[in-house]
């Protein structure tokens, strides 16, 4: 017998999240459009508008993470490792974040060790992880974020660095796990949990992906390191 036919609260959860995502999508689209027509000098509420866009994006990203984790839990997320050009990946990252970061006076630069580098991973999931890291860094940075990509010890390494105050010590204990709940920083740990879950799905020749947090790096702030085999 078909098994999906009994409605459950969890089913409404998923469909409502979809619906909310649609609304948020419209909202952030419209905000971006308005922001693109104005600049700081000709629009007095420019900063408030930027903050609205930032919060909208954050909400959307959280909902997206929840939905993906929910589907992974049900074994229904269609994980797909495919060949990704890292140059294109970084272009996507820039394209998605440029407008908001420029509006907030933050400079995002990307550095790719080998312009023709390609790697296999689930593009949507990893883009979700890095987007989250960039968003997070944008909260603590003084104005600069650096995303760099290289292959280290046979693993793809994507580093998101900022020039802020860095991670608090308790978050730096070895490999990051889902334990980093810190309500004072407005963090529920969802982003980190999502990142570690998603990276662990990436397997190749006996190795798994992982997440590492450090302080220092090129800009002296927090360093969010994604490793994919």
């Amino acid at each position: 017998m078909p098994i999906d036919d009994q409605p459950k609260v969890s089913a409404f959860f998923a469909s409502s999240v979809h619906d909310m995502k649609n609304s948020l999508g419209m909202l952030s689209g419209l905000l971006e459009k308005v922001l693109a027509r104005h600049s700081e000098s000709d629009f007095s509420d420019y900063h408030d508008l930027t903050a609205m866009l930032y919060e909208t994006r954050r909400l959307n990203s959280d909902l997206m993470h929840l939905l993906t984790l929910y589907k992974l839990d049900l074994q229904r997320y269609p994980f797909q490792s495919q060949s990704v050009q890292l140059a294109e990946f970084l272009d996507d990252l820039q394209a998605q974040n440029d407008r908001l970061l420029v509006a907030r006076g933050i400079e995002l630069s990307c550095r790719l060790a080998d312009a023709s580098l390609e790697w296999h991973f689930d593009e949507d999931l990893v883009l979700g992880v890095i987007n989250h890291a960039v968003n997070n860094a944008s909260n603590y940075t003084q104005g600069r974020i650096l995303v760099s990509v290289d292959v280290v010890d046979g693993m793809l390494e994507i580093r998101v660095e900022d020039d802020g105050g860095g991670y608090p010590p308790f978050m730096l204990t070895g490999e990051a796990g889902p334990s980093g709940v810190d309500f004072t920083r407005g963090s529920t740990g969802l982003g980190l949990f999502f990142a570690t879950t998603v990276l662990a799905l990436h397997k190749n020749k006996g190795r798994s992906g992982c997440l590492q947090l450090e302080n220092g790096g090129h800009l002296g702030g927090g360093v969010f390191i994604v490793k994919i085999p």
Binding site: G25, S28, G29, M64, Q94
Partner: peptide, 16 residues
């Protein structure tokens, strides 16, 4: 493209 559609991302992906 997963919603919400971002203007920059759509341009990139479509061009590609």
């Amino acid at each position: 493209l997963i919603k919400p559609v971002n203007a920059g991302l759509l341009h990139q992906r479509l061009g590609r």
